[in-house]
Write a protein that binds this DNA or RNA. Sequence first.
RNA 1: GGCCCGGUAGUUCAGUUGGUUAGAACGCUAGCCUGUCACGCUAGAGGUCACGAGUUCGAGUCUCGUUCGGGUCGCCA
Length: 591
Amino acid sequence: MLEFMGNMRRTHYCGTLRKTNEGEEVTVCGFVQRQRNLGQLIFVDVRDRTGIVQLSFDDTTEKSIFEKANATRSEFVVIAKGIVKIRSSINKEIPTGEIEIAVNEYKILSTAETPPFEIVENSNVKEELRCKYRYLDLRRPDLQRNIIMRHKIAKVTRDYFDENGFIEIETPMLIKSTPEGARDYLVPSRLYHGECYALPQSPQIYKQLLMVSGFDKYMQIARCFRDEDLRADRQPEFTQIDLEMSFVDTEDVLAVGEGYIKRLFKEILDVDVKLPLPRMTFADAMNFYGSDKPDLRFDMKITDLSDIVKDSGFGVFKGAIENGGSVRAICAKDAVDTYTRKNIDRLTESAKGIGAKGLAWVRLTDEGIASSFAKFISEDEMNAIIARCEAEKGDVIVIVADKDKVTLPTLGALRLEMANKLDIIPKDEYNLVWITEMPFFEYNDETDSWDAMHHPFTAPLDECIQYLESDPAKVKAKAYDLVMNGTEMSSGSIRITNPDLQKKMFNALGLSEQEAQEKFGFLTDAFKYGAPPHGGMGIGLDRLCMIMLKCESLRDVVAFPKMQNARDLMSESPAVCDEQQIKDLGIKFEE
RNA sequence: GGCCCGGUAGUUCAGUUGGUUAGAACGCUAGCCUGUCACGCUAGAGGUCACGAGUUCGAGUCUCGUUCGGGUCGCCA
């Protein structure tokens, strides 16, 4: 039954045929979506990446061809030549629904076993199965569309940066491990036993060196690797749109980033993005949304109640404030039916999971105020809380009392959890915001020292340099994140090029001159030979695709993703290697 | 590493308080059918109830462990 293509060649993609093609002899090929056999009349739907077209076989069809059509099953690979005809009954559901191909030459190029799941749009098959048979999952029209859109996004990206004078340069995959930040994937060296390459977490150092080399504007669609645990929006290998520019300050980089976003949204989604994009300081993001990546598609701001309850009779509130913490709240509108006692208990469990000791709450029901702490505080205080939260009948207020380090992230997480449950997040909106004035250092309780919140080449704001040694908490960075619908989409900064300042930075981070030289010497050495001021950013291509295409997971926009345990169920990697390979590398595994 | 959710036919699911031979839909196979397009009709095949132990007269159902998958916290400069 199987045949070779012979001289048959495709003239059209299936989904492109229309009634304007009537009478033409065309050849299409693809996978069989479905065969409908009516006895003396057979229809075969053929699918390729552009869509589906119907083939028809009847009593005018040559007998041997009719028999092949009869034997055709789903997912067979076929090629068919025939005349485009207007259908006697039109299918309005599909773009090719007005025509069909009356076949006069037909070959089955490959048969197919019944696939483990149907190749249809919007299938809700288990993740496990989809990933094991990823090549079949990728046949599904929605995934095909996503992957093709990703290609278009990459194309617009290259066009935009090319038109703006950027040069695409590849940087190495096998590099030196710089033990900062995320865990590196290591590649043992065969030639030098005991030594390793690392896969890049980002092309950071190389792109800065390219500025020293005078390329002035660089971009790359770069593969990056981080050996950390996965999330719906985190894969161990991912792609960044990486860029760096010389002779610029923050505003110049943001302007390029904004121009890119505007162009991309227009070309890909025909959405007009208004520029300049809104900005929010890191401090405001934390104080009002409890997150450095606030989802601003809905309101529900965090409110500070500390001054109202500081003298209240409720020990939990009073105690938190006396310990230098705060009492803060969020108010969910029309939530009283959703957040029954039972659901508030569940919410309390989530809050505890995040680090809060508990949750205080107020429910404004038709029957009056119900609250977990009403008996401990005065009526005036309760009224003040309700007024401050701008709460009305039907609303639910949840309150966390603790150190800011607990109250803010907890309420930030509850805000998202409640908004999801209440279904108040507008799904068709794209909300973009720059987060600016990022803090420079982060206090590490365990080591009792200050850690860099960014890589150590990030420049401080000019006016903050004076506090570098005296008051690290006050220092803010020339760093900026672009947040889209509550997902960190991009992160960048202006870099330090002044050797004295760089020395101070290493010093403030507790890095000795020798350590700094060992880790980053080739960069600081490079700066000695003339370093233009420069800065840039990295934009997460996978996340960008995920959000623009309204997907829930990166797995919907990455062709061959890893599972949550970092495995690939299809190829079954990672896997045990050949003994000789391991021996060549001079390494040994512990039992 | 912690927490939460899940695993029943090829697929998606139902399965009552622990009680006879574990069901449905779709898919698959065969037959019939000249205008279907989620074709229709008829018949049929298809199950280690994830795996292992335990409780019980009796376990898909209860308990414990393991495993696989999802979400999340830690982690992700």
